[in-house]
Amino acid sequence: MSTHRTRYITLTGASLAIAATCIPATAFAATSPSTADKTFVAANEQVNLAEIAISQLVMTHSSSAAVHTLAQKTVSDHMAAKAKLMAVAGKLGLTLPTAPNAMQQAQAAQLKGLTGSSFDQLYLRDQVAGHKMSIAGTNTEISTGSSTSVVSYARAYLPVAQMHLSMAQADLAAISGGGPGSVQAGSGGQAATNGSTDLRLGWSAGAVGLALLGGGAVYADRRRRALQ
């Protein structure tokens, strides 16, 4: 038994040694993280951190069932992504950021100040914008990344982000969060193109006309009396 095990380890070691000598040097270079890989990893971790933070706000700031469903899904998926990314980063010796970026923090602060429908509108608009940007960055990593483990992570992450985007877009459309459908911002009529001018001139002309009319009547009356 012991002899077999020793022989097995030896063979395995020999195989690995042979395999290592057969792999071209460029293959090692291809799997080491490039600057773009490192940037993607850092950015994606910040997306995970931001998604987890703002989706947790939903629990206390929204009463929409659809928004809660999306938030629960994003928290769950981004926590799973975070765990996978931590493993990838550990393997590559990369240090991950511990906080969202400035824009994400500003968006979280904006969300914290809202409740109800305004919160839902902003949350969903941010979800659509954030996931579109995240997907764009992920696609770039897939097509240009160097590290096989980072690219592999990106490939697994992409459909998850695409699903979140679809859910957010559908929810946004359902609550008319695309923006104002109308704005009623005038009741005076003074800015009506040509209309205000016509109006002022009209009343002015009317007033002058009435004055002339009155003056004319008085003049006619006096003239008639003088003739009598």
Binding site: L201, G202, W203, S204, G206, V208, G209, L213, G214, G216
Partner: peptide, 11 residues
Amino acid sequence: GLLVAAVGVES
């Protein structure tokens, strides 16, 4: 006067 008043009202 009548003319100007009429123009004004129409305007």
